[in-house]
Write a protein that binds this DNA or RNA. Structure first.
Length: 164
DNA sequence: CTCGTGATTGACT
DNA sequence: GTCAATCACGAGC
């Protein structure tokens, strides 16, 4: 169950990979909505996004944390960690737990049998904050998370914010 | 618990 | 050459 996400857009969002236009890395952000955008960062981690907008309008939602509900053993093995609360708390941890790599970049999440989303219960009590790891000047309050859910990551939002 | 720091690849300027 | 949509770990409180 997804418990923490952040939104990114190309136009008017300096923190977005797509802010300065189309590149080899970010091209799936410019494609149709509902595809996986997987990128590698900090020399170590992959991060999973779901594209939005589409039709030449770049956009994506970064999946930052999930509450594991099944496949716990596999996730523990992938992470080399026992503690359930931290298995998939944080975008890098999440992709490692689920075994998601850049080979899934561009995957059609509507049609794929490998990677897809299912509808679950609506989450009650959604918190809003600035995005994690984004410079203060670029920080819209576009992080959304399940309040009081222990599986949300411990990343610190930046202090200042401005919503367009 | 919080804070500071190093790791390590590759995309972009 | 710069630096990033991060994480783990160790020191200190």
């Amino acid at each position: 169950m997804i418990v923490e996400v952040e939104a990114y857009r190309g136009s008017g969002d300096p923190a977005s990979h797509a802010f300065r236009g189309r590149t080899k890395r970010n091209e799936v952000m410019f494609g149709p909505a509902g595809h996986a955008y997987v990128y590698f960062t900090m020399g170590v981690h992959n991060c999973l996004n779901v594209t939005t907008e589409g039709d030449g309008m770049p956009g994506a939602v970064l999946i930052r944390a999930i509450e594991p509900t099944e496949g716990l053993d596999l996730m523990r093995r992938n992470r080399g960690l026992d503690e359930t609360r931290r298995l998939a708390a944080g975008p890098g941890n999440l992709t490692k737990a689920l075994g998601i790599g850049r080979e899934l970049n561009g995957e059609d999440l509507v049609r794929s049998r490998i990677l897809f989303l299912e509808r679950g219960e609506n989450i009650r009590g959604i918190g809003v904050s600035t995005r994690v790891g984004v410079g203060a000047g670029k920080s819209f309050r576009w992080r959304f998370f399940a309040r009081d859910n222990p599986f949300v990551s411990k990343g610190k939002p930046s202090v200042r914010s401005q919503n367009p």
